[in-house]
Design a protein around this nucleic acid. Structure first.
Length: 430
RNA sequence: GGAGGAAUGGCCGAGUGGUUGAAGGCGGCGGUCUUGAAAACCGCAAGGCUCGAAAGGGUCUCGGGGGUUCGAAUCCCUCUUCCUCCGCCA
């Protein structure tokens, strides 16, 4: 959510900066409902003031032993006037919030202008793509042949876009979870959290998924519960409604969770394999920081995610997203794209963003800076990134480390977690 | 699921219809003292919305929502959360 006073005062600039991102209709809706609301609020406050004055006069008259009936009669009328106007203020309040909460964040000045992913900027590349003496296979062929993933049986359980991991496949997934959490907690300074995998509407509003993206989420019937689409939701909302002390910042959190997504708009995309699933596992990184450090922290958080790819020796490139390709709440986003030789393309494996105060304003996460800042609490900046998506890491390993005989070598960093050096051609850890 | 109790500012905690936006304490900030620090003492400081160029006003907020009343932290209804006991249970 943008600051409403800022939006009001800099409307034309905001409109220009949102050229690749916003539906201009919501901006116009905001202006209309906001000015109506302010007029109504001013009016109602004048009436409230009158009511308060009359009440004070009643109290004084009673104390002096005088009859206050005339004042009471007048006050009753004022009370009725206030009551009649309250309803319209409520309606206008909701209209303002409804439009405001559908306006995306402003892109940072370093973000390239663009319409979509074709305008993203490659800003780094790491690792050597593996050479194969044979034609590398996609992970679904390798995984099914090894018996470490099963899509057909998963369909019996839940339908398409689900996978069952078996044997070495399940163990590889678990090893990746432990490896990532150990690196982030042990070496990058993150605090490990195990949150609920369900969150209420308020949390999803706080991080920006609601109200606009309800169709991407799974809702639990006849409850206010949603399956979390990412650990960003519970981790960021951990501090909702709090005023933090500056010495508490920065807060760095990491969590393993499954992530649940409807993928409603992606029919026909990535239908094979484990690339796009209704449920996938992820280790998430979240930072809550003060405003002046957030862009440094974005570099650090992105480097923390990159470190996992480097340790696993997976080649990747780093993309700076264009204004048109960024998510709704982000001010600046780096995507890390891992090389997938079986598919012959780079694929997003981590998305690291600075949301500035956009989420903090919605979730009401503030910090009290007492020195040189007038003591007023201000909104913190929030950041998050995948560190990494485990499903996609799993398939990247399978594709990059595949061998001619159909076996898969385990990256060195992972061997102590699996107690093995490879998944042999029969699908057994060896 | 049943029966009770509770929710007040960054934190703790007074307060049951009329200068109580809220005592007191802790923590914070500024100052006095000190070579410096601590201690002691003095002072400052809730959040949102709104009007205003500003200075400065106004208004709302004592878990959320609604009601009673001229007037509500205080009375009523309702929801949520937490605690205690019972039941069930991984």
């Amino acid at each position: 959510m943008l600051d409403r006073a800022y939006l009001r005062q800099h409307f034309d600039q905001v409109r220009a900066r949102l050229v690749d991102r916003a539906d201009y209709q919501v901006l116009d809706d905001f202006v209309a409902s906001d000015s109506k609301r302010r007029a109504a609020v001013t009016e109602i406050q004048a009436l409230q003031r009158k009511r308060n004055e009359l009440s004070a006069r009643v109290a004084n008259a009673r104390r002096a032993g005088e009859d206050a009936l005339d004042i009471v009669k007048e006050a009753r009328q004022v009370h009725a006037d206030i009551h009649a106007r309250e309803e319209s203020v409520h309606v206008l309040d909701e209209a303002v919030v409804a439009s405001l909460s559908r306006i995306p964040n402003l892109p940072h000045e370093t973000v390239p202008a663009g319409k979509d992913e074709s305008d993203n900027l490659e800003v780094g590349r790491w690792g050597e793509r593996p050479e194969f003496s044979f034609r590398p296979k996609p992970h679904w062929d390798i995984g099914v042949a090894l018996g470490i993933v099963d899509f057909e049986r998963a369909a019996k359980l839940a339908g398409s876009r689900f996978a069952v991991y078996l044997n070495a496949g399940a163990k590889l997934e678990r090893a990746l979870m432990n490896f990532m959490l150990d690196v982030h907690t042990g070496e990058h300074g993150y605090k490990e959290i195990l949150p609920p995998f369900i969150a209420n509407s308020r949390c999803l509003y706080g991080t920006g998924q609601l109200p606009k993206f309800a169709h991407d989420l799974f809702k639990l019937e006849s409850t206010d519960y949603w399956l979390v689409p990412t650990a960003e939701v519970p981790l960021t909302n951990l501090y909702a409604d709090e005023i933090l002390s500056p010495e508490n910042l920065p807060i760095s959190l990491t969590a393993f969770t499954p992530c649940f997504r409807r993928e409603a708009g992606s029919y026909g995309r990535d239908v094979r394999g484990v690339i796009r699933q209704h449920q996938f596992q992820k280790v998430e990184l979240v930072k809550i920081v003060s405003s002046e450090t957030s862009y440094d922290e974005l570099e650090r958080l992105t480097a923390d995610a990159e470190d996992i790819l480097r340790r696993l020796e997976l080649p990747y490139r780093k993309m700076l997203l264009s204004s048109g390709d960024m998510g709704f709440s982000a001010a600046k986003t780096y995507d890390l794209e891992v090389w997938l030789p079986g598919l012959g393309e780079f694929k997003e494996i981590s998305s690291c963003s600075n949301f500035e105060a956009f989420q903090a304003r919605r979730a009401r996460i503030r910090c009290r800076h007492s020195v040189g800042r007038k003591g007023k609490p201000e909104f913190v900046h929030t950041l998050n990134g995948s560190g990494l998506a485990i499903g996609r890491t799993w398939l990247a390993i399978v594709e990059n480390y595949q061998q001619a005989d159909g076996s898969v070598v385990i990256p060195e960093a992972l061997r102590s977690y699996l107690g093995a050096e490879r998944i042999d051609s029969s699908g057994t850890l060896a």
